[in-house]
């Protein structure tokens, strides 16, 4: 499987990263090199193997349903690049 330029653009769009035309070619060859490297996994027989998704082998711990956080709007907003009052602000979205 090797990536064409259109796929590189589609992936960049999915990842919300703007790429210039000049970058597409470089990215294409770099990404193909990485994909070429991982291609070796094809030779591993994984029949009947349960995929391992996490680093820890335990069951999920849960917490009590208690109000223990929030009420810190000033801190939540302190790093915001743009805001309107106590709201975050972004360029206008047309739905």
């Amino acid at each position: 499987m090797s990536l064409d330029a259109a796929t590189v653009r589609r992936i960049a769009r999915l990842a919300r990263i703007r790429v210039d035309d000049a970058e597409v070619e470089t990215l294409q060859s770099e990404l193909n090199a990485i994909l070429g490297y991982v291609e070796q996994l094809a030779e591993v027989n994984v029949e009947g193997v349960t995929p391992l998704s996490g680093g820890a082998q335990m069951a999920l711990r849960s917490r009590e349903d208690q109000l223990s956080d929030g009420g810190i709007a000033d801190k939540i907003l302190a790093n915001a690049p743009d805001r309107v009052g106590h709201f975050f602000a972004v360029p206008k979205v047309v739905e």
């Binding site: 919300r16 790093n79 915001a80 690049p81 979205v93 047309v94």
Partner: peptide
Amino acid sequence: VRFGARVDGHDLIDMYERTRA
């Protein structure tokens, strides 16, 4: 949107793409 550097764009998606690029 909530923290970090932003590069303005003409709409939300453009802002995302420029910011992340």
